[in-house]
């Protein structure tokens, strides 16, 4: 368990942000931590959607229960956090 910095690019927001996550966090937890700095601040919530994490500009999302330590990210990796149906 260790702090791990990522570059959060949240759907609908205008700026990338530094967000500290934990290597034990799941992708859902990563999305929540990123949402804290965007949703209800500059991005309207979408309660009927789930938030998914993917590498910047990638087409595939990471599995929701995958841990940060298993994702193979570099420190400060840029991630897109997007609203999805599932």
């Amino acid at each position: 368990m260790a702090a791990f910095p990522i570059n959060s690019n949240f759907q609908g927001d205008f700026v990338m942000q530094l967000v500290p996550v934990d290597t034990d966090d799941t992708m859902d937890q990563v999305a929540e931590k990123c949402a804290y700095h965007s949703v209800n601040r500059r991005v309207a919530p979408q309660p009927d959607k789930v938030m998914r994490v993917r590498l910047h500009n990638a087409s595939d999302n990471f599995p929701r229960d995958m841990k940060v330590s298993d994702a193979g990210w570099r420190p400060t990796e840029t991630l897109d956090i997007i609203f999805a149906d599932q």
Binding site: N7, N9, G12, F14, V15, M16, N57
Partner: peptide, 17 residues
């Protein structure tokens, strides 16, 4: 300066790592 791009309905914020 901050890495910024278009928000909202036409969301397009790009990083060039």
């Amino acid at each position: 300066l901050p890495i910024v791009g278009t928000p909202g309905n036409e969301w397009n914020v790009q990083d060039y790592p």
